[in-house]
Simulated assay, not measured.
Amino acid sequence: MPMTTQQALVKVPAVTLGFWLIKVLATTLGETGGDAVSMSMNLGYLVSSAIFLMVFVAAVYWQIRAAEFQATRYWIAIIASTTVGTTIADFCTRSLGIGYAGGSALLLTLLAVSILAWYFTLGRVDVGSVNTPSAETFYWVTIMMSQTLGTALGDWVADTEGLGYLAAAEIFGGLMLLLLALYKFTAVSRTLLFWAAFVLTRPLGAVVGDWLDKPIANGGLDLSRYGASITLISAIVVLLVLLPQRAAVRAH
């Protein structure tokens, strides 16, 4: 179906089941990809964060420059946001020495500041309002903050609380199902539910990514981070082909 003029002005995808499936895979890729650079290549969290931040800024600039929604540009920017989120979260929680609880609190504060600044500047923070360069800028800053917070939350639950990766994945998966029930059966703000789900998919992907590549002694499968990352990229490409993304409808 041809894209309408209203849809073309919104350069982020409609929120569908396909969107969430690809988002979880992208966040898992962010974990394995981020760890591959910071740990496997032994570059450290600070250098890796600087590298991924430059990639993220370039990807967002490329996305904002587009005249209309393009799925490839969008998901490249999402993957860039989740890899930089991985290394920044690890830097905050490990290198700064404030721990997962302190890191999560700091990142939650930054996410709240981002959303509030967006709201008070433009008046709304829903996906359908992302149709100007200013809204896109706020959107992508908020995306990066949510990805970073999600990484810290995933590590906090899986490692600090000693639950392990699979148990942590069950917890975050259960919370996603709770949000789905709230969406289906209540009148809770759809915007609030979207951002809550967006944050929660990140720790879900983070713990799954850790489960794939962490040592068996630590509860992981000890798979190659490079191999896991390539597999996840392939899966994302397949889903983008099988489940084409369409632009969100412009908010009025």
Score class of each variant (00 low, 15 high):
A197L: 01
A228Y: 06
T151G: 08
Q147T: 15
F185A: 07
G164D: 01
S234P: 01
Y183L: 03
G102E: 08
L180K: 00
T191R: 04
Y100L: 06
L223Q: 14
G162V: 03
L149Q: 07
L149M: 12
G103E: 13
L179F: 14
M145R: 05
L192D: 03
G205C: 03
G162H: 10
S234E: 05
K214Y: 07
I143G: 00
A235H: 01
V157A: 07
G99I: 02
E161A: 11
L239I: 03
V113Q: 05
T201E: 05
S104F: 04
G99P: 06
S104P: 11
A105F: 11
D222R: 00
V237P: 06
W211L: 08
L177K: 05
P203R: 07
D210K: 13
T148C: 13
G227F: 02
V141G: 05
D210G: 14
T231P: 01
E170H: 04
P215V: 02
A105M: 10
M144H: 01
V238R: 06
V237D: 01
P203C: 08
S189V: 08
I115S: 02
R225I: 00
G162T: 02
L166T: 01
L192A: 14
D222A: 15
R124K: 11
R124S: 11
W118E: 06
V157E: 00
Y139W: 12
L163R: 15
W118I: 00
L163C: 00
L179N: 13
T109N: 07
G97Y: 11
V207K: 03
Y139D: 03
G174A: 03
I143F: 02
G128Y: 06
W118C: 03
A112S: 12
W156Y: 12
L122Y: 09
S129K: 01
T201M: 11
T201F: 02
V127A: 10
R124G: 04
T121W: 09
M144S: 13
S146E: 05
S224R: 12
G219P: 06
Y100T: 13
A105T: 11
D159V: 12
L221F: 11
N218V: 01
V141T: 14
T148D: 13
V199C: 04
G220Q: 08
G102N: 11
